[in-house]
Simulated scan of single mutants.
Amino acid sequence: MPVTSTSATDARRTGGRIVTFGIVAIVALLAFAGGLLMLTLPDGNAFNARVERIFVEQDLTAQAEVKLLEILAQSGTAFADTLASYRMVIFVLLIFAAAMLVAALVFLVMLAGMNRRMAQIERSGIQVSSLIISREENMVYLNTMGFKLTAAMIETLSVLAEARMDDEMLTGAQIEAVISGRDASDCEEAAGATRIKRLRDGLGNQMVSELLVRNIARKGYHLAIDKDVIEVV
């Protein structure tokens, strides 16, 4: 039966596509809104054009009438300058709005990714990010923790690691055959199962000691967890 898994690369690609589409949608929406707003704003020179039309069509000879038209023309110029400044303010506000929306989208995607990551960690218990097997030292380094194993346990773990890198699954007889150098048909399933049990016991006990039950020298033992998460039912 095939094993369905979601790799970190696929998750990053999906998140990248979501961010890209979101940014494009935000920019397009704000560009449309900004263009519509700019088009609906009145023309700043419309007032000056109307004053000029009155000056041309009407026969104005009185000094007071000419002075009034000059005042109206100056008012129209001030109105045009005000509209130009409004357009600049609107443009700057649209840029800030786009930046804030893009930042919010990126943070939401990052938060969703972190939540999925935390859910995976909670389901798996321990998230293994690094596994280094040292045959010379008979040590296995799991993330930032090092555990001392016997040579037989190291061989068993090495066989399992090689099989995992090849996406293979081994039976107990196959594990015993690889380690002993014999044919799998000549090996017993129980022999490989015994090796796995010893590996689990040896590595599991050390992991429990490292992560859960701590031994404080000349003081005693205690659980290395927050007391608020303990619940006895």
Rank of each mutant, 00 (worst) to 15 (best):
M1D: 05
V3P: 00
T6Q: 10
S7Q: 03
D10N: 08
A11F: 05
G15R: 01
R17C: 07
R17M: 12
V19I: 15
G22S: 08
V24C: 10
V24I: 15
A28T: 05
A31Y: 08
A31G: 13
A33G: 03
A33P: 01
L37S: 06
T40S: 04
L41D: 11
L41R: 14
P42Y: 07
P42Q: 09
D43A: 10
F47C: 05
N48T: 14
N48K: 15
A49M: 11
R50C: 00
R50Q: 02
R50I: 00
R53E: 12
R53I: 00
R53K: 14
F55A: 15
E57H: 06
Q58H: 13
D59F: 03
D59R: 10
L60R: 05
A62Q: 14
Q63P: 09
L69T: 09
E70G: 14
S75N: 06
A78D: 06
F79L: 14
A80G: 14
L83D: 07
A84L: 15
S85W: 13
R87M: 01
F91G: 10
V92N: 09
L94I: 15
A98D: 09
A103N: 04
L105Q: 05
L105R: 03
F107G: 11
L111G: 08
L111T: 07
M118S: 04
A119N: 10
Q120A: 13
I121Q: 00
G125R: 00
G125N: 02
Q127F: 08
V128A: 04
V128K: 02
S130R: 13
I133H: 06
I133K: 10
R135L: 09
E136W: 01
N138Q: 15
M139A: 01
V140Y: 01
V140Q: 00
F147A: 10
F147D: 06
L149V: 09
L149A: 08
L149P: 07
L149R: 04
A152G: 05
A152H: 07
M153K: 06
M153F: 01
E155P: 02
T156M: 07
S158F: 02
V159Y: 04
V159P: 05
A161M: 04
A161N: 11
A161Q: 06
E162V: 12
M165I: 07
M165E: 14
D166F: 01
D166M: 07
D167E: 12
D167H: 12
E168P: 01
L170W: 00
G172T: 05
I175C: 08
A177T: 10
A177V: 06
V178D: 05
S180M: 08
G181P: 05
R182F: 03
R182T: 02
D183R: 12
D183E: 11
A184I: 03
D186W: 02
E189D: 15
A193M: 15
T194R: 15
K197M: 04
R200N: 12
D201T: 14
L203E: 08
G204N: 06
M207A: 15
V208E: 13
S209F: 04
S209C: 01
S209W: 04
L212D: 00
V213Q: 11
R214T: 07
N215T: 13
I216W: 01
K219P: 00
G220R: 10
I225Q: 07
D226G: 11
K227H: 11
D228Q: 09
V229R: 11
V229W: 09
E231M: 14
V233D: 13
